[in-house]
Every structure is written in structure tokens, then in C-alpha cells.
């Protein structure tokens, strides 16, 4: 059984570690915040200028001056801090953020990622995605294994314009988890979602990959 959006977010939350500063992308990555284990100290960064993001506000707490990078209203928590966009991207570019969890349109077996532009369609812009993939220590992609036409999004080479080259460390899909081995050594299949077989992953993956020792259907 392929993972649901919530199950994908729950699996991605296993990437969190105590003490981490984390930037979550828009979409499924945002849901990861709902699965931070109790007692684990994880600080969420919002690239528009905030560390320590709180939950969505109650109706009477909404503040136009307090939004996340998806432009949704949010709240502050006791450890929150605010800063400018240049300070925010100094944190990101300077390698101070431990983990970024992002969505993607395509990921290649060398860790290339494409998630901002489809030629011929209206381009909205890359926002902070290029800075995040270039600057954050560890980039984990969470996405559906295939696009809406059923084509693999895990590829030998990306076909869309890139967001970054060789930057992705791990790919979590609704079917499985791949590690991107360093120095262009390709992908390794390290987990299968419940009920998913090696054969199913093989039939739905365009990229080449090795299978971790001990991984069975």
C-alpha cells in the first residue's frame, strides 16, 4: 500500500533529531510539524524571518505581521526570534540549518533536484528553494514516487530546469526510501512502505539503484 500524505509526513518526521533547526517546505513537508515526537527539541525556521514557529493562531490571535513562508498566519512561542531576510538566508547559506525537508517534481540519482519550473508553463519563481538546497546541511525530499501521468519522478537525470545539483541526501516517496550516496555513487533503496514489493518499486522507478542488504519484500 502506498503511503498517504499523512503517512509520508510521519515517515519524514523520523529524519528529525533532538536539537535540530529545521526548515520545512510547502505542502506535505509542512505536515511534518504535526509529527515532532513529544519531548524532542526541534526548532522550525521560516525563511521570511523567524525561528521557533508556533501553531496556526486561534481566530482572535490572527496577526497580519506574523506569517510563515507560505504566507499563512502563524503564532510565536517562547523561544521565537525574528530577523531580516538577509539574516535568515545567512543562516541557510551559512550551513546553520540542520535539515531541510522539501517537495520536488524530479530527483536524479546523483542528487540533482528540480522543483521550481516547468518550461512552457507560467513560472512563479524559485522563492527560497535554491538557497535552501545549496545551503542546508542535509536535504531530504518528500514526494510521490510518480507524477500524475504515472511517470517516475526518481530519474537517471532530471528533465526539468534544476533547483540544485547533487544536493539531495535522501528521497522519501509513497512507495519507498532511497539514500543518495555521496560522490555520485547513485541511489540505494533502504526501505519499502508497508505492502510495497521490490518488484513494484523496480517497475515504477526510472533511476538505477542498488538494494540495501537485508531489504526484502
Amino acid at each position: 500500500m502506498a503511503r498517504t500524505r499523512e503517512q509520508l509526513a510521519e515517515r519524514a518526521a523520523l529524519e528529525l533529531q533532538d536539537g535540530f533547526y529545521v526548515n520545512l517546505g510547502i505542502g506535505i513537508p509542512t505536515l511534518v510539524a504535526n509529527y515532532i515526537p513529544d519531548g524532542m527539541e526541534v526548532t522550525l525556521q521560516s525563511e521570511n524571518g523567524m525561528l521557533g514557529m508556533g501553531p496556526f493562531p486561534y481566530d482572535d490571535e490572527v496577526d497580519a505581521d506574523l506569517i510563515n513562508a507560505g504566507k499563512q498566519t502563524i503564532t510565536e512561542i517562547p523561544e521565537s526570534s525574528y530577523f531580516s531576510s538577509s539574516d535568515s538566508f545567512a543562516m541557510i547559506r551559512g550551513g546553520h540549518i540542520n535539515l531541510s525537508i522539501l517537495g520536488a517534481m524530479e530527483v536524479a540519482e546523483n542528487g540533482d533536484i528540480a522543483n521550481w519550473m516547468i518550461p512552457g508553463k507560467l513560472v512563479k519563481g524559485m522563492g527560497g528553494a535554491m538557497d535552501l538546497v545549496a545551503g542546508v546541511k542535509r536535504v531530504v525530499v518528500v514526494m510521490d514516487h510518480a507524477n500524475k501521468h504515472g511517470q517516475s519522478k526518481v530519474l537517471k537525470d532530471c528533465t526539468l530546469p534544476l533547483t540544485g545539483t547533487g544536493v539531495v541526501s535522501r528521497i522519501i516517496t509513497d512507495l519507498c526510501v532511497f539514500d543518495v550516496k555521496p560522490e555520485g555513487k547513485g541511489l540505494e533503496l533502504i526501505e519499502l512502505a508497508d505492502g510495497v514489493t521490490l518488484e513494484e518499486v523496480a517497475s515504477k522507478t526510472e533511476a538505477g539503484y542498488t538494494v540495501a542488504a537485508g531489504l526484502k519484500s
Partner: peptide, 29 residues
């Protein structure tokens, strides 16, 4: 890229004509 935009403005205001960043290397940018 958002961080490049922020830093270009910061640099401009600080009298720095140019800088190097890893953001966007290998992309259209």
C-alpha cells in the same frame, strides 16, 4: 533566488559590488 536577492540588496547598501554564493550553481540562475 530569495536569499540571493536579500544578499544583493544587503551588499548594495554596504558598498559591496559583488559576492560569490553557492546558490544557483548549475542552474539557469
Amino acid at each position: 533566488p530569495q536569499g540571493t536577492l536579500a544578499e544583493r540588496i544587503r551588499a548594495g547598501g554596504a558598498g559591496i559590488p559583488a559576492f560569490f554564493t553557492a546558490t544557483g550553481v548549475g542552474t539557469l540562475v
